[in-house]
Simulated assay, not measured.
Amino acid sequence: MTSATRVPLPMASTGCACCAPTPAPDQTAPTAETAPPAGTATVYRVEGMTCGHCATSVTEELTALDGVTDVHIDLVAGGASTVTITADRPLAPEAVRAAVEEAGYTLVTV
């Protein structure tokens, strides 16, 4: 049996944050200028979500509402999840309820 020279394979990705290479000078971290626009943030509670797919469905329905700029969900599987909606103007509670119900979930508080 002959010994072969082993050649390491290239990594498929840059790895996690602790072992990723430092960014090139032209690839700086996002600045405050690239942050999402400020707006009115309203917190709701939604029941029935159990996974990331559920959260994605709710997010898609809510971002389709006119004026919504951001949706953040703190998922609580088996409980009421906190949904924070940022919009450039106040949203009608009925519109939020309809969007959540369209996704298949229940809005607990308005």
Rank of each mutant, 00 (worst) to 15 (best):
C18A: 11
C18R: 13
C18D: 12
C19W: 14
C19D: 03
T22N: 11
P25V: 09
Q27I: 11
T28M: 14
A29Y: 02
T31R: 08
A32W: 10
A35T: 12
A35F: 14
P37F: 04
A38S: 13
A38D: 09
T40M: 12
A41I: 14
A41L: 13
T42I: 04
R45C: 12
R45T: 15
V46S: 00
E47L: 15
E47S: 13
E47P: 09
G48A: 03
G48M: 03
M49E: 04
M49L: 06
M49K: 04
M49T: 00
C51D: 05
C51F: 11
C51S: 05
C51M: 09
C51G: 02
C51I: 03
H53M: 14
C54D: 06
C54L: 07
S57P: 03
S57Q: 11
V58C: 09
T59N: 10
E60C: 07
E61V: 11
L62S: 09
L65Y: 08
D66S: 07
D70K: 11
D74H: 09
D74N: 08
L75N: 01
L75C: 04
L75W: 02
A77V: 02
A77I: 07
G78S: 01
A80S: 05
A80I: 02
T82M: 12
T82F: 04
V83T: 07
V83R: 00
T84N: 07
T86V: 02
D88I: 01
R89I: 03
R89E: 10
R89V: 07
P90I: 04
P90Q: 09
A92Q: 05
P93A: 05
P93R: 00
A95Q: 01
A95I: 01
A95W: 01
A95N: 08
V96R: 00
R97I: 10
R97L: 07
A98N: 02
A99I: 08
A99P: 02
A99M: 00
V100Q: 02
E101A: 10
A103W: 06
G104C: 06
